[in-house]
Design a protein around this nucleic acid. Sequence first.
DNA 1: TTGGACATAGGGGAATCCCCTACGCCACGG
DNA 2: CCGTGGCGTAGGGGATTCCCCTATGTCCAA
Lengths: 228, 228
Amino acid sequence: MVMNQQNASSGKKSRVLVVDDHPIVRQGLALLINREHDLVVCGEAEDAQAALTAISASRPDITVVDISLDGPDGLELLKNLRGRYPSLPVLMLSMHDESIYAERALRAGAQGYIMKQEATDKVLVAIRRILSHEIYVSDRVASRMLHRYIGSPGAVEQSSIADLTDRELEVFRLIGKGHTTRQIAEELHLSVKTVESYQARIKEKLSLRSARELMQHAIQWSISEKSA
Amino acid sequence: MVMNQQNASSGKKSRVLVVDDHPIVRQGLALLINREHDLVVCGEAEDAQAALTAISASRPDITVVDISLDGPDGLELLKNLRGRYPSLPVLMLSMHDESIYAERALRAGAQGYIMKQEATDKVLVAIRRILSHEIYVSDRVASRMLHRYIGSPGAVEQSSIADLTDRELEVFRLIGKGHTTRQIAEELHLSVKTVESYQARIKEKLSLRSARELMQHAIQWSISEKSA
DNA sequence: TTGGACATAGGGGAATCCCCTACGCCACGG
DNA sequence: CCGTGGCGTAGGGGATTCCCCTATGTCCAA
């Protein structure tokens, strides 16, 4: 963990805490952020534990958290922070290109979600956006989520999985267990064609493009269900 | 891709090419390396294709390659480089603690293997070690490999995923990212039929019965890898 | 009673899955 | 120095799935 006091002179820089278990990423972000005239890294942490210590020590204006930390992961940390520091905004950082985590992160109270694949300047954009009390997500993720929440704006509370019909959810669950279309049809005493219909509608409702993506989400969901 | 010419004055800095699909990591490494008096980043690339271009354009003394690139992964690039530039040393960088990759990398001709979890200065150590014609692996990886060599299973052997061929593992990984058979074929510049062959062999080796089960395991594996 | 939402299911072409076979390398052991 | 076997590559061809449309019956609420 490294502290940085270079905002003493200007006195009005926004203080950023960086939490990531990869020192290289931490360092990269720190150098990037410290180059800005209105931002300064006030601390770094490599895990949730260190992050809590660092926050109480350095009082950041915003926290950038990698989602896949060792030990308690970024989502855990985020939930923890929501309890202790409700007004401290959090930008989640992720290796994942999928929006699965974006949803979870935002639902858990993050103010932004950005992937490491994106250009570095997007991180700065996201930080500033969040500091001005807006929410940042990449265009792709945003459009997908917007698409999903048409009709129920305002309260971004429930997963779109909740929109699934009982039958659809059943099929979704079985997909997540790795079952074949044919197997599912037999287990539910349905025509293969019917199961195909459900799969199509699930893809529609979850804005997924291929059967492969559908499986990906179903499996990820089933994993998170087990530990929930 | 960014070029950097600041070695004009001193004239004897070692030129480093950085290959990673995360701009933040590239930038972090670049800033880190460029701070050294004897090293300079001569170029960056985000994938294997760009790496080949950058190498012929900037003639690096050493290449730092992330193992999990999009499209052809770091191992592929490494093998490719071994054919084209046998004397160009490569330091493999990885998110994974798994020694599967370390062994594969070294066997494929890498001069070093380091994890992003390690301190940033280890990267510099590794680079200098390699530039002086030595091989670098972290103590942790080294001891683990030794343990395996000795054959004493202190910890139970990793899953049979370690039995997968480099190519098979690559396909497995892309399946885990939700990619389609066709997409994988295109990304790896292979026939769809070849990709199908790999899938069949993976299923065989992992004792899986259907493509669905294969996807399930691939996705689960990719999740656990990312947050390992 | 008319419009949805939901469960069910078929048609048909494209993409896969799945089981086999095959061929060129290249390393390693006999 | 020649097998033998692992590895990467790839095709044939039938069985399934995928994917986009359409369709019917049911129940419930407006």
